[in-house]
């Protein structure tokens, strides 16, 4: 059963949110969704780029009140 996890990396700066996502991915199963919360705009650009590069599924990125919500699915 796929889970949805929140990775709250607000307050950190690049590449902190990416590293927090990767730590969370290690303990996730294929098919799980992970939503990174980041107040760092650079990470909002960089995380989707990383996700495409390494081959996970990028779902969406939205911003609300200065917090980026970047959602991905673990694919491998």
């Amino acid at each position: 059963m796929a889970e949805k996890k929140i990775v709250d990396a607000c307050g950190s700066f690049c590449p902190g949110p990416l590293m927090e996502l990767i730590v969370a991915l290690k303990s996730s199963q294929i098919g799980d969704e992970l939503e990174v919360l980041s107040s760092d705009k650079g990470s909002a650009n960089d995380i989707p780029e990383w996700v495409r590069k390494v081959g996970h599924e990028y779902i969406s990125a939205t911003e609300a009140d200065g917090v980026w919500h970047i959602t991905i699915r673990k694919s491998k």
Binding site: C14, P15, L18, M19, I22, D46, W50, K53, V54
Partner: peptide, 11 residues
């Protein structure tokens, strides 16, 4: 450290 870590986690 930024270059090393991001490159390493990108394969």
């Amino acid at each position: 450290a930024m270059v090393a870590s991001v490159a390493a986690v990108s394969g």
